[in-house]
Design a protein around this nucleic acid. Structure first.
Lengths: 233, 233
DNA sequence: CCCGCAACTTGACTATTGTCATGTCATGGG
DNA sequence: CCCATGACATGACAATAGTCAAGTTGCGGG
């Protein structure tokens, strides 16, 4: 992925999308750009937060180590998502660890840069704040709407988000373990399996960690249709 | 409810809870305090936003009028919730109308006051922003956890939030239509009915819009228990 | 006072999902 | 090369919650 394409993604992130051009440039010019390998650690629990992170490509998971030694995944982020804002703005230690699940590009905005920019021009704070409240309310709405969709539909949307193209057919690699996907979509691995089998009917073939979509429009129709309409299957 | 008690609630709201004392005082001294009757309009769709609203007591609903003339409830807010932040910070017209569902106390913080305070001291923006991101992530976590609770458990938590006391027995009035409660808890009215019948087993009696809880601790235990543990009912 | 409407309850049925158990398959260690 | 392990698929079953339909109740208008 080109640096320019990465910048485009970065501009769409919650943090930057409402900022005036000149400030976006300032932040981008101070940002640190890094690629991580699969499994590489981005930061560890208890480390002091010094930056806000924006995922440009690939997948990142936040997790905690449980007393028994197994890990509990807190959340999974992907292209365009930012994380660590609250912690960075407050200069406190991370409550979780972050690791690259796939190869991924992450942009780090040093928090001192953002904070000094905000102190210099309070408008920045106001516009980020307004964008955040909007995001917060849309999130609530989305999550309420999630209950109106079946598991298979959520999986369909997940697949659509993985595709870059708008139409026709598309092959995508599932970026990580199906168990992790299931967690992200709020279902058990078994239910994910069943959701995949259902999607066969709308032209989706799953082979290992690879999905083949024969017709994106058809899949989109399915994802957005009223569950009731699909009952007469 | 005394004015002092109202101030305590206001201080706990998302907007104020992270602010330094002096700024909270400034905002509180400029705030407008009003009581609304059941059914009274707080603001109308298309009106220009001039304040951020904090519910101190009672219930407020946001809704849109559909083309057919019926109303679609967007969300319901209660004690400690604030709304209209994004709209007020951007000075754009309201996309929804707000109405008091029960008698309620609402504090209005004029947005020009907050904005000028933020311009004067950018730290304010930073601390509100940090609090907002924290809230945003906890919301996501909460909503994911919702899927781990049955409808009856969500209703139990809803009732517990209505009680002021910590222990023993308690009578509360249901603040509004059961249809509205069902919407707020993400279930159909029928499911709410059935959830209420289940709660009979843990000492809850429903009569009209009035709930009688015989033992709050028992209800809390039920709400927080693992659904699997209640299967052997 | 009665009627009708709307909210609410209840019952029957169905779809979805979680749980448990089992089976398959690929991978890596011995 | 074989087998143990873990990821994944699948079937059987149970529980939850949505849908549809039919009743019940309370309230306001006529």
């Amino acid at each position: 992925m080109s640096h320019e394409a990465q910048k485009t993604i970065a501009r769409q992130s919650l943090l930057l999308r409402s900022l005036p051009e000149q400030h976006v440039e300032t932040l981008l010019s101070h940002a640190i750009w890094r690629q991580y390998d699969r499994g590489e650690t981005i930061f560890l629990q208890e480390e002091e937060a010094q930056a806000i992170h924006v995922v440009l490509d690939g997948w990142v998971k936040l997790f905690r180590m449980t007393p028994t030694g197994s890990e509990a995944v807190v959340s999974v982020f992907t292209r365009g998502d930012s994380f660590g804002e609250a912690v960075a703005l407050r200069n406190v230690p991370y409550p979780v660890s972050a690791e690259a699940v796939s190869v991924c590009d992450v942009m780090h905005i040093p928090s001192p840069i953002l904070i000094s920019l905000m102190k210099e021009d309070p408008e920045i704070g106001i516009s980020i704040l307004a964008a955040t409240f909007t995001h917060l309310h849309s999130l609530v709405a989305q999550l309420e709407q999630l209950k109106a969709q079946t598991g298979a539909q959520r999986v369909a949307e997940f697949l659509l988000n993985l595709c870059d193209v708008e139409d026709g057919e598309c092959d995508v690699a599932l970026p990580y373990d199906k168990m992790l996907i299931a967690g992200r979509l709020g279902m058990k691995p078994e239910s994910l399996s069943r959701a995949f089998s259902r999607l066969k009917a709308v032209g989706v073939k799953i082979n290992r960690n690879h999905a083949q979509i024969s017709d994106i429009s058809q899949l989109r129709d399915y994802a957005e249709s009223d569950p009731a309409d699909n009952w007469g299957r």
